[in-house]
Design a protein around this nucleic acid. Structure first.
Lengths: 334, 334
DNA sequence: ATAAAAAATGAAAGCGCTTACAATTGTAAC
DNA sequence: GTTACAATTGTAAGCGCTTTCATTTTTTAT
C-alpha cells in the first residue's frame, strides 16, 4: 500500500503538504498541488481513511440502527438519509436492533466503538432514559420515528396520533359509524398512538368506542387476516376497518375477500404508512402517508448541521401525515 | 476518552496486556484478566476500533454497494447478509451506486479507502473488466446477482435464464400459447436473461416467438401498466402475460383490470422475484421465487470463509429459482 | 531596495492501538 | 534444589495520517 510518505518523497515535498492537498486544507501553491497530484496518480495512491480518522478524530461515518432491513419501510428511510449524506461524502454504518433492548444496546455500543460521528436510531426496545443518558454523555444522536420529551431536539418523528385520527376521521366523514380497528403492537409507541388517534376521532364525532371492535395485531400482514377473522368470529359488526399499517390492511383485505365481503362496497379499508405496494393492491389502498423518506433525509440534515456544521440544512421535528385516497374506502351502502 | 494506557495504569499492567484481554488473544492469567476488566469497567473504557483497525490492518467492516435502498429487494438481501455478519461481529458500510458507472466506481473507491476488509457488490453499470481488474489487484469482493465468467468464484447469482424459462414454461404447460412478455430493462443482464429464458421455453414447446408480444419495461410498476396498454394498442392478442418482475406484474394487473380483463379468467399473469407484497395482491401473484435473502447470506458466508478464514460456512455460486403458484394463473378458457 | 506581512512549507509530536520480541515468572521433572 | 520449558507479561516500534508551531519563501508597501 502506498503511503503519503512515499508520495511526498516522489513529489519532493513534505508529507504535511501532501496531506494538505488531499484534504484541501491550509494553503498550497498551485504548482505544488500539481506535483503532488501527479505523484499520487503515478504511484496509485489511495487515501487511508482509517489512519486519517484516528489522527483527526473524525470518521465521517454515521451509525444507523434500524429494527430490520427487510420490508420497504426502512429501505425507504435509509434511502432518504443516504441521498442527503452522499453529497456530503459521509457514509452509513448499518446495524439492526431487532426490537430487542439487549441487541439495540450492543449495536449502539459497537457503532460508538467505531467512532461514528453521529448515530441515527430507530430503536424500539431501549428505554427513553437510556437514550436521554446517551445524549447527556455527549453522544450525537438523532432518534427517528419516536418522540422523547427530554431530548425533543434530537427527535424526528411523525405525528402518529394525528395519523390515526385522520384515518378514522375519513371513515367517519364518509358515513361510517361501525369501524373496526386492527391495531399494531400496543407496546410500541406507534401502535399505541395510532389507536389513540382513532379513539379521538370517534370521540370528536360522537361515536361510542367499544373494545369489541378492536383487535391487537403485530404490524404483520398475517395478523391483519387473523384480525378480521377474530373480529367476525366474535360477532363484531362493522362497515369499515382501519388498520395500523398497510401490511395488516392487505392481510385484512385477503380475509374479507375470503369471507365474501367486497372492498369497498361491503367494507371500507384504510391502512397506514403508504408503503410502495399500497398502490399495487386492487383496489388501490386508501391510507395515511408516512413521509418516511423525508424523515430519513431530515435525520441526515440534522446530522449535517449539528455535527458537521453545515448550515443551509433545514429540518423539522414533527412531520404531518396526510390522507391518501385510493379505492378501498367508500360510503357505507344504505 | 479513556485509553488503553489509562486502563493499564489503573490495573497495574502494561497496555499490551490490556490489548490482550480486549481481543482475547495471547495468554493472560485469569487473575490479571479480572484486574483489567475491573479497571475498564471503573473507567468506562470504550475500545477504539479505529485505532485498532489502523494497527491491525483489519476493519471488520464489509463494504456493500447496492443500486438503491428503497423497495423491498435490497433490504431483503442486506438483511440476509446482516444476519450472518452480525454473529461474526462484522459491520456493513452501505453505499448506493444508482446504476451509474461513475457513481459505482466512486463508491467502491470510497469503501476501499475506508479499508473495508471485503466488498459485496450489486453493481449494474460498471463493466466486467473493471470488476475483474479489482479482483486481480487483490481486492476481496463478491459480486451478487451477476455472473462474470473470469471471476466466477467471486460471484453469487441466480439462474435468471432458468427463472424466465420456468415462468413461461408454466404458462405453456397449462395451455397458453399466446403469451405476452413485459421485459425488464434489456441493458441489464437480469432483464436480458429472463427474456432469454422465456424464448427458450417457447422454443422448447414449439411456440413461435414474435416481437409483437414483447414490451420492454424498466422494472418499475408503471412500466407494467404501460406495457399492457402498449401491447393492446398495437393489437397484440394474448391470454397470458409474463413479467420480468413483480412490480411490473402488479402494474400490468392494474392495466388489465382497467381494460375489463379479469385475472386470471381472461388473462393469466406471472411475475418474477416473489417480493413480499406479491402475496398481498389479489389474487396472490404467481411468480418465480428469487431467494434474495439467501443470496445475501451466501455473500456473507463467502466473505466469512474467504476473508476471515472462518470455516463451516458454505455457499453456492448459482442458485435456482422456483415457481410459486398463487392465484394469477389458470388455463385459458376455451 | 528593504522591512513587514502574508503565504507556503516542513518538522515532529501525537492519535490509540497491535504485535513481534525480549524478559520475567511459574511449573514440572529430575 | 536445579534445570528446561511453558506460560505470562512488558518493551517499544510502528500503523498512516493530521496538525501545531516554527521556518522559509514570496509578496506588498514604503
Amino acid at each position: 500500500m502506498v503511503t503519503i510518505k512515499q508520495v511526498s518523497e516522489k513529489a519532493g515535498v513534505s508529507s504535511a503538504t501532501v496531506s494538505r492537498v488531499i484534504n484541501n486544507t491550509g494553503t498550497v501553491k498551485e504548482k505544488t498541488r500539481e506535483l503532488v497530484m501527479a505523484a499520487m496518480a503515478e504511484l496509485g495512491y489511495r487515501h487511508n481513511v482509517v489512519a486519517a480518522s484516528l489522527a483527526s478524530n473524525k470518521t465521517h461515518t454515521i451509525g444507523y440502527v434500524v429494527p430490520e432491513l427487510h420490508g420497504s419501510f426502512f429501505g425507504a428511510m435509509m434511502g432518504g438519509t443516504e441521498q442527503a449524506l452522499r453529497e456530503a461524502k459521509k457514509h452509513m454504518l448499518i446495524a439492526t436492533g431487532h426490537s430487542d433492548a439487549q441487541i439495540e444496546k450492543e449495536q449502539i455500543d459497537a457503532l460508538l466503538s467505531r467512532r461514528c460521528d453521529a448515530l441515527i436510531l430507530h430503536v424500539e426496545a431501549v428505554s427513553d432514559e437510556y437514550l436521554v443518558n446517551l445524549v447527556d454523555q455527549g453522544v450525537e444522536l438523532v432518534v427517528v420515528n419516536r418522540f422523547i420529551e427530554e431530548i425533543g431536539d434530537n427527535c424526528i418523528s411523525l405525528d402518529n396520533i394525528k395519523g390515526g385520527y385522520l384515518a378514522s376521521r375519513h371513515l367517519l366523514d364518509i358515513g361510517h359509524t361501525q369501524i373496526a380497528y386492527i391495531a399494531g403492537s400496543l407496546f410500541k409507541a406507534d401502535g399505541k398512538n395510532r389507536l389513540t388517534g382513532h379513539q379521538q376521532a370517534l370521540a370528536d364525532m360522537g361515536v361510542e368506542y367499544t373494545d369489541n371492535l378492536i383487535y391487537e395485531g403485530n404490524f404483520q400482514a398475517k395478523s391483519g387476516t387473523e384480525g378480521i377473522r377474530a373480529l367476525v368470529a366474535r360477532g363484531a359488526k362493522f362497515t369499515a376497518v382501519a388498520c395500523a399499517n398497510d401490511e395488516m390492511a392487505s392481510g385484512a383485505m385477503i380475509a374479507l375477500r375470503e369471507l365474501g365481503r367486497r372492498v369497498p362496497e361491503d367494507v371500507s379499508v384504510i391502512g397506514f404508512d403508504n408503503v410502495d405496494f399500497a398502490s399495487y393492491l386492487s383496489p388501490g389502498l386508501t391510507t395515511i402517508d408516512y413521509p418516511v423518506q423525508k424523515i430519513g433525509s431530515m435525520a441526515a440534515h440534522w446530522v449535517l448541521e449539528r455535527v458537521y456544521g453545515h448550515t443551509r440544512h433545514e429540518y423539522q421535528h414533527i412531520l404531518s401525515p396526510r390522507l391518501i385516497l385510493r379505492g378501498t374506502t367508500s360510503s357505507p351502502e344504505q
